[in-house]
Deep mutational scan, measured.
Amino acid sequence: RLRTTITPEQLEILYQKYLLDSNPTRKMLDHIAHEVGLKKRVVQVWFQNTRARERK
């Protein structure tokens, strides 16, 4: 499986959303995924990875 490439514009939106809520609901994940044009699962994993990186 190929990795999904996230553009700088998408990253900017994801980080803005992360600052508002680091643990979004399913509904919010759907909305964010639609807004940035990525699959919900990709957005979900991005949030998981970002939370894990923050803990280190």
Rank of each mutant, 00 (worst) to 15 (best):
V45Y: 06
K17I: 03
K39L: 06
K39H: 05
W46F: 04
R41E: 15
D30W: 04
L2V: 13
W46V: 01
L20R: 06
D21Y: 02
Q48M: 05
N23L: 05
L11S: 11
A52K: 12
V42Q: 05
Q44L: 05
D21M: 07
R51H: 13
V43K: 00
R3Q: 15
Q16H: 06
K17V: 04
T50H: 09
D21L: 03
T25L: 03
L19K: 11
D21P: 03
P24W: 08
I32N: 00
I13P: 00
S22T: 06
L11V: 11
E54V: 05
N49Q: 08
K17C: 07
R51V: 08
A33R: 01
I32E: 01
V43P: 02
Q48T: 11
K40V: 13
E12H: 10
P8C: 15
Q10I: 06
E54Q: 04
Q16S: 07
W46Q: 01
V36G: 02
L38C: 06
E35K: 05
R26W: 15
E12V: 05
Q16L: 15
N49A: 08
H34T: 12
T25P: 08
L2Q: 13
E54N: 03
L20H: 06
E54G: 06
V36W: 04
N49H: 05
I13F: 13
M28V: 09
K27T: 12
V36Y: 01
L14Y: 00
Q10W: 01
V45M: 11
K56W: 06
E54S: 04
H31M: 12
T4E: 15
R1M: 14
R53C: 12
E9C: 02
Y15T: 11
P8S: 09
E54R: 02
I32V: 10
R26Y: 10
E9K: 08
L38V: 08
E35Y: 03
K27A: 11
H31F: 10
K27C: 05
P8I: 15
F47Y: 05
T4C: 03
D30F: 04
K39Q: 13
L38S: 03
K27Y: 07
R41Q: 14
L2Y: 14
H34K: 14
L20K: 08
R53K: 10
K40F: 13
K17D: 02
V36H: 00
P24A: 01
